[in-house]
Design a protein around this nucleic acid. Structure first.
Lengths: 243, 243
DNA sequence: GAGTGGTCTAGACCACGGT
DNA sequence: CCGTGGTCTAGACCACTCA
């Protein structure tokens, strides 16, 4: 009957689910760390084990937890192998996944253009870090990327030599800036290659290129990175299941 | 101990789920028809109501059933508004969905090329029906489609004047041939427009086009249609959520 | 063998939809 | 009001993992 009357009306499994979700996102248990057993959770939250299971079921469904029979239930760090593998066929002949080499072409601190600062929910005057980057496999250019980061979150990145960034940015974000990418929204389009792009990708000007625009979100759903990647259409393939 | 020892080892909710799935697919209950109540199913299948709920939960998740509290649980016909809307922005200014006009350019009975008969799991000699079709919105060409159907399943289609096909094929398949599309697998690629295609789509030769290759499946998972659709890349936009 | 998640039961009460 | 699905309980037993 208190201030939280609304919460009290929700089903118990629902409240427990949201409570666990918040704890996981808040880093209460580290990745690949087992959470308390179902029996323990049932006791500490004063609900039955069936209710605990229903809450956990939903979080497993969401991809936040992973059950392993006989061992426990674990926090699942989003793989995020880089969604490249969803879209582009970078596999070698044997189908193994190879991480493309990354070459930073440019880095500067400026105000992002309006659509980007809008997507990142930044004020018009807020500074951003702009990266442009070429990704290659076997010295063959595969993608040209333009990346924007909020200056306020990613300041520590400026102390690192871009040549030391490595081939994947997300681990760098996490180590240097404590920024973890939890999910992303991508938009696919296609266009004809501009001359400058064609030169970088070593294709004919006007040849078809795939454009992937991505907004990466933190656990809290805050946008923390905006990027657009362009690659030759002939390297591209994407499959979808429709129901 | 019997012949069905394997089945007997599966969990009850699993067996019940598959039993219900088969009944639904077999048309045991018509679309928008309520299935028996949970209590009834529990009694007839000699399991507890909790087990029935778990089986139904999974089918709801799969999109085969729909629960409506206080009324019952209903068979849900897949909408399949045509996945066009997933990929192409056909909406008018107000964002409403409009079905593009369909113009059949060609219809013939021949043997499909090997990749198509492979995808349709047809023998090399089996006959197919080949359609080619242009789709337009406001008399503006949007997609050129090439469609292959197994002759054996779709014979009745040959008795219909192609001008009477209408703007959507799937309802036609169902009414004339009893073939219901339940799901589909699509592959997206992009390429430069061939001159012939460019002429149909009224774009420049070499302009980027999106290619959507689709295999449509029946409830049983049998492939019943193969099609490839090509449209101007500028009309194309597709969004994905990544976790 | 101890501890974990996985399955299953037989009830109870609640919230909602129609009559 | 009755019948539906929605939530919840307090157990039971099974299957798996690991020491």
């Amino acid at each position: 009957m208190g201030l939280r009357a609304i919460d009290d009306r929700l089903p118990r499994y629902h409240r427990l689910r949201e409570h666990l979700r918040a704890e996981i996102r808040g880093g209460r248990w580290r990745a690949a760390q087992a959470i308390p057993t179902e029996a323990e959770l049932a006791k500490t939250h004063a609900v039955s084990i069936g209710t605990v299971r229903k809450a956990i079921d939903a979080l497993v469904q969401d991809g936040l937890l992973e059950r392993i029979q006989g061992r426990g239930t674990f926090v699942r760090r989003p793989k995020f192998d880089s969604s490249l593998f969803r879209f582009f066929r970078f596999q070698g002949a044997s189908g193994e996944r190879r991480i493309p080499e990354s070459r930073i072409l440019h880095l500067e601190v400026t105000r992002p253009p309006a659509p980007v600062s809008g997507a990142l929910r930044l004020s018009k005057r807020a500074a951003g870090i702009h990266l442009s980057r070429l990704r290659l496999l076997d010295s063959r250019p595969l993608l040209l990327e333009s990346i924007w980061l909020p200056r306020a979150r990613f300041g520590p990145l400026l102390d690192v030599d871009p040549r030391e960034f490595g081939d994947l940015l997300y681990p760098l974000y996490e180590q240097r800036c404590g920024q973890v990418v939890a999910s992303a929204q991508e938009t696919l389009t296609a266009e004809a290659a501009e001359p400058g792009l064609a030169k970088h990708l070593e294709i004919e000007p006007g040849a078809p290129v795939i454009v992937v625009e991505r907004v990466a979100l933190s656990f809290d759903g805050e946008p923390i990175e905006w990027r657009v990647s362009r690659g030759p259409a002939r390297e591209f393939r994407y499959q979808v299941e429709i129901r």
